[in-house]
Design a protein around this nucleic acid. Structure first.
Lengths: 233, 233
DNA sequence: CGGGGATGTTACAAGCCGGTGACAAAAAAT
DNA sequence: ATTTTTTGTCACCGGCTTGTAACATCCCCG
């Protein structure tokens, strides 16, 4: 295998059986990934926050808090909600619930699995996140709806008129939901960064955006000293 | 099992009978689709917004709000108006109303239906939306009618004389109904992009188009700072 | 509790953007 | 060849956007 110039992805593996942990860990390391392990739900949540892994492999069967619950909690925490999760499940029947949106797992592998298949899934999911940069043309957040190609924003089914820059600012934030964007970052992405523009300009546009969005301005969060971010509660 | 590179289409199934729901759901899942279910009209509308499914299967007979009403409401909400709908109906006589333009369903299946037929319809409709980029040779928008091969445009049954470029500009916009087209995009598609032409030329042609279309110019929408778009109300 | 930096708010002028009418070149029709 | 139609460009204007500055608040920190 060719050496990667970039640091390889870090993966958190969660399983209560030491043997399974070792098997999975060994194969992932062989594929060049950095591996962190956890053997119960609470440990998994802690390590997920601590290490900010690029992907989580999560066994459904866990003592105390089960894997489904862990997955839900991971999704709820802004620090971990964006991390892709692959569930390991023994029963094929569980698949439906696992992939259901309420849980938000990104993929699953049924036990027993071949190491090769597992690594393939991991690679796939990581690639989707990195080079795909996933740019959906539609967002649905609470009662806000954004359609990029149609250049349309509605809040509670009522149309909101936005100017070109306001719209781009909103979609930029929405597409990086949960992650804070610095003013410099926003200037680069929204204003295309050849312009030398005062960073305070961003503030003004945020204000105009909030004004037009009305109640939905609750989705636009200010992070003092850092920038702005799109939140969904 | 081969790894899917792309997430399969998500389908919302709406029916008040659990048995029907299970039957349809099972077959769609077997065909590789992700399935979300709802058992009444209100739930359907909520889940349609929430999950942004790629297609909706909608039973006509529903408690409280009936399927026809749900369909109408789906069409009215910008967040869901573009999602194709297949109606499930028991009586063949209802078909006319279902497919009537006021409702805007895209297809129907009469009960009892064979699972194979249902899945076929679903596949068909999804394909039409994705790879086809649907290029029909005829458009019917409100009181405007466009026949591409015959190079004919009528508004309220009255013929409108358009020049070649005006006609191509109109059909290009009409075929991407709802989506904003930048001037550059239009130059590429209408003027065949080898020419180096001032983008303002597009404006002039839009003006001439609007003038000739008279009242129907309400379908041609300017999105300041972005481009032009075809709207249908 | 008070100071200083960061953010929200307001106001405004410059300038960009799109609508419009005119015009000439090019193409088509006669 | 002449007339007519089409088409690309330009200049002008009104209005909306938008960047900025000045002022008001808020919040963190000691």
């Amino acid at each position: 295998m060719p050496t990667k110039s970039r640091v390889m992805a870090k993966i958190l593996v969660v399983d209560d059986e030491p043997d399974a942990l070792e098997l999975v860990g060994f194969n992932l390391k062989a594929a060049g990934y950095e591996v962190v392990t956890a053997d119960d739900g609470a440990d998994a949540l802690k390590k997920a926050r601590q290490h900010a892994p690029d992907l989580i492999l999560l066994d459904v069967m866990l003592p105390e808090v089960d894997g489904l619950e862990v997955c839900k909690l991971l999704r709820r925490d802004p620090a971990t909600s964006q991390i892709p999760v692959i569930m390991l499940t023994a029963k094929a029947a569980e698949i439906d619930r696992v992939l259901g949106l309420e849980l938000g797992a990104d993929d699953y592998v049924t036990k027993p699995f071949s190491p090769r298949e597992l690594v393939l899934r991991v690679k796939n999911l990581l690639r989707r996140r990195t080079d795909g940069e996933e740019k959906p043309d539609q967002f649905n957040i609470g009662d806000m709806f954004i359609d990029v190609p149609r250049h349309l924003v509605t809040v509670a089914r009522k149309r909101i008129d936005l100017t070109a820059t306001e719209f781009k600012l909103l979609t930029t934030l929405a597409s990086r939901r949960g992650r804070v964007q610095s003013r410099e970052q926003l200037l680069r992405d929204v204003w295309e960064y050849d312009n030398i523009i005062d960073t305070r300009t961003v503030d003004t546009h945020m204000r105009r955006l909030r004004e037009k969005l009305g109640t939905a301005c609750r989705y636009l969060d200010t992070v003092r000293g850092v920038g702005y971010r799109f939140v969904e509660n």
